[in-house]
Simulated assay, not measured.
Amino acid sequence: MRCPYCTNSASKVVDSRATEDNTTIRRRRECLDCGKRYTTYERIDNLPIMVIKRDGSRERFDRNKLLNGLLKSCEKRPISREQLEGIVNSVEQKVKNRMENEVHSTVIGELVMDFLRNLDEIAYVRFASVYREFKDIQTFRKELDKLLNN
């Protein structure tokens, strides 16, 4: 870290504390050469997670896109927005815990369906019908049979 006043690299930390949201550490530093004080912030560098779509294209993981899909699946169901945001948070955390820069959309879809299956069967079937691209009623029926047998 270089002093913004004299560009000297030697400094000492005078004060260090976490911000209110605990995502950043604020440090007051004093330059050992000119004696002036300045503030630095330390935070984790989050690299974007890329989602590999079915057609092979890649796009950034988008929490809002996932939440919007869940909102459509859960429309007129007794599921709160907080529950849906909890699913999004859990899915995002599981994807980040994989410690990979890229993840296939199928992994995300399966995670979402696992959460929805336990939360609301109707929302699960709605999401699955779009995600799995049911082509006909027979495919839809097979998914319902699997759900009923479990």
Rank of each mutant, 00 (worst) to 15 (best):
R2D: 10
R2S: 10
Y5D: 06
T7D: 02
T7M: 04
T7Q: 11
N8H: 12
N8P: 03
S9E: 09
A10P: 00
S11P: 00
S11H: 02
K12L: 09
V13Y: 06
V14N: 09
D15S: 12
D15N: 11
R17N: 11
A18I: 08
T24M: 13
R26A: 04
R27D: 04
R29F: 04
R29L: 00
C31I: 00
D33F: 15
C34W: 06
G35I: 01
K36Q: 13
Y38I: 07
Y38Q: 02
T40W: 03
T40S: 11
E42A: 01
R43F: 05
I44N: 06
N46P: 07
L47I: 03
I49E: 09
M50K: 10
D55L: 06
G56E: 05
G56P: 06
S57F: 07
R58V: 04
R60N: 11
R60F: 03
F61T: 10
L66E: 07
L66S: 04
L67V: 03
N68G: 01
G69C: 13
G69D: 12
L70V: 07
L71A: 10
L71K: 12
K72I: 04
K72R: 13
S73V: 00
K76I: 02
I79G: 03
S80R: 00
L84D: 04
E85M: 12
V88E: 03
V88S: 05
V91T: 07
K94A: 15
K96N: 04
E100R: 08
E100H: 08
H104K: 10
S105K: 02
S105I: 12
V107Y: 09
V107D: 14
G109V: 15
G109I: 10
E110A: 11
V112Q: 11
M113D: 05
R117F: 06
R117Q: 00
L119M: 14
E121A: 13
E121H: 15
V125G: 14
R126A: 09
F127Q: 13
V130E: 10
Y131M: 07
R132I: 00
R132P: 00
K135Y: 11
D136P: 15
T139L: 15
F140W: 02
F140A: 14
L144M: 07
N149I: 05
N150Q: 11
